[in-house]
Design a protein around this nucleic acid. Structure first.
Lengths: 113, 113
DNA sequence: CGGAATCCGTTATGATACTG
DNA sequence: CAGTATCATAACGGATTCCG
C-alpha cells in the first residue's frame, strides 16, 4: 500500500518521493492547488486514470495528510477533495519539476506558469 | 527498461519524475554533485544497493543525459561517473525534496544543508 | 574491478464489472 | 455518484553466479 520503494536510508528525500513518486499523484495535487474538486471531476479531468487507481491514490494522499476528504451524506453521494496546508507546500515543488521538464524537453502542450 | 509508470500525458512533470521517481536515482545524483565517483565507490557508499540495480540506474541516467560515463581501458578496469550540466540542474530539486522531508517529519540522521 | 546473465518476488497500475 | 471487488500484468528492484 505504501511506496516501499522509497525506504529508510535509500534516499534523503524518500518521504517526498513516496508522495510524488507515483504516476498520478503530482497531477492530482496540482489539480487541487486552487480549488477543491469532486471525485468525478478529477476522474474526468485526468481522463485516463482508472477509478480504482484514483481511489487508491486519493486514499494514500489522505493518509499522508496531503489532502482532505469531505463526504456529504446525500443522494447521489458527493465527495470533495482539497489540499491540506501540508499538501499545498508540495505545489511549488511540482511546479519546479514541471518547469525542469519544460526546460529540458520541448513542445509540451501543458504549460505550467 | 524505462520507467513506464511515468508516461506521456500522465503528468506535467513526468520526465523529471521518470528520473527522480525511483528508489536510488536521487541519491546517486546527489552523491555526484561535487565530484565524480567510480562504480565501486558508489556501490560502497550507498551500501545496500545491488550491483545489478546500480548498473541499471547508471545506464538509465546516462541515457537520459544526466550523467557521463568514462571508461578507462586499464587493468583492473576503472569507470568514473560524473554529472552532466543537465544532471546538475537536478541537484537543487533534490535538495528541495529532501528539505521538504525534513520540514514535515522529524529527526533525520541525514541532513541536507 | 565493473560489470553481464539469470532468475525471481513484490508492487504499481490497469480493465472490467458490480453496488449503495 | 463514488466508489468495491476481482483479476491480470508489466515493471521495478533484488540475489546470485559468472566473466574479461
Amino acid at each position: 500500500m505504501k511506496k516501499d520503494v522509497f525506504r529508510y536510508n535509500s534516499c534523503p528525500a524518500y518521504r517526498s518521493m513516496a508522495i510524488l513518486g507515483s504516476k498520478w499523484k503530482p497531477i492530482i495535487i496540482y489539480m487541487l492547488r486552487e480549488r477543491k474538486a469532486r471525485f468525478g471531476q478529477l476522474h474526468a479531468a485526468i481522463g485516463t486514470i482508472s477509478k480504482k487507481v484514483l481511489t487508491d491514490m486519493l486514499k494514500e494522499l489522505e493518509t499522508d495528510g496531503v489532502l482532505l476528504r469531505e463526504e456529504f451524506k446525500e443522494l447521489p453521494p458527493r465527495v470533495e477533495y482539497s489540499l491540506t496546508e501540508k499538501g499545498s507546500t508540495l505545489v511549488p515543488i511540482i511546479v519546479q519539476l514541471a518547469r525542469w521538464d519544460n526546460m529540458h524537453y520541448e513542445s509540451l502542450t501543458t504549460t505550467v506558469s
